[in-house]
Write a protein that binds this DNA or RNA. Structure first.
Length: 277
DNA sequence: ATGACTAAATACTTTAGA
């Protein structure tokens, strides 16, 4: 996160998101607040944090309300102890989840089994949650071969194996829509490019950062895209932000937590800027 | 070839990422 502050703050000022989901903050909560608390509150953001000292770490920033914060996932496994990989909050009537799914490292390894069990716990939480919801973050799974620059590039490695894709499909079977792919059904779109080998310049990437919305939220999507520009320049993350623009909730369909004076529609964004790389 | 980049800890190397 420290390394990404000079990228995050101008990006917030440029894109003006109402809600931001961050992953891989790699900061304890008190260090995050010390580093960014004033800058974020000056911009009108409330913050929900689930951080730890060196690895992982997720956050939600919101300037349209931030209620009912839940840190972590009930019943999720640890490795071996619980890790800071999930935080949820209700923002303008929408249940927002910021997630950093375990990497899995090597198929069939302990970490891989952890990843699958963690995804099952995530599914259970989202499945019993509110109707209006959006699941954002680094899923560490490319949903299909079309989400990898070359299906053979990561063959037999994590992120593309059948069990991982099945776990993601089980989550989506709750009725979640992959709103970016729905808007760009045939395009070559990626959210992650390895730092090595000039992969970004060659556009050799993977689409592993997703925004998955329940039907009522998906119906409000006006635009959904990957902010490739944010992967350029000095000291970028190796992931690009995913941006989702939503229309206002339809009349009579607003949840009880929607502020009556909310003049602009919520625009949840799943962001990977803070990867301190 | 387990490499190529990048970041962070207590750190001058190791670990992790995907």
């Amino acid at each position: 996160m420290k390394r990404r502050v000079p990228r995050l703050l101008p990006w917030l000022d440029q894109r003006q998101p109402d809600v931001v989901c961050l992953q891989e903050t790699k900061l304890a909560n008190n260090a995050f607040t010390k580093l960014l608390g004033d800058e974020l509150s000056d911009r009108g953001y409330e913050v929900a944090l689930n951080g730890e000292v060196q690895w992982n770490g997720v956050a939600i920033l919101s300037r349209v309300g931030l209620n009912d914060v839940v840190v972590g996932i009930p019943g999720a496994p640890g490795f071996p102890d619980p890790e800071a990989r999930a935080v949820a909050a209700t923002c303008a009537g929408i249940r927002v989840h910021s997630l950093y799914v375990p990497n899995g490292r090597v198929p069939d390894s302990d970490h891989y089994q952890y990843k699958l069990a963690w995804l099952a716990a995530l599914r259970d939480m989202v499945g019993t949650g509110p109707r209006d919801a959006i699941v954002c973050g680094d899923m560490n799974i490319a949903p299909t071969d079309a989400d990898v620059f070359d299906p053979l590039a990561y063959a037999d490695e994590t992120h593309v194996t059948a069990p991982e894709r099945a776990a993601l499909a089980e989550l989506q079977a709750l009725g979640l829509h992959d709103v970016v792919r729905d808007r760009w059904p045939h395009e070559r779109i990626f959210t992650y490019w390895d730092y090595r080998g000039g992969f970004f310049q060659k556009n050799l990437g993977m689409r592993i950062d997703l925004a998955l919305a329940t039907g009522p939220v998906a119906d409000r999507v006006r635009a959904a895209w990957i902010d490739r520009l944010a992967r350029k320049g000095t000291a970028p993350s190796d992931h690009a932000p995913v941006i989702v623009d939503l229309d206002e909730a339809p009349d009579g369909d607003a949840g009880p937590t929607v502020p009556p004076s909310s003049a602009s529609p919520p625009r949840p964004g799943s962001v990977r800027l803070p990867q301190a790389r």
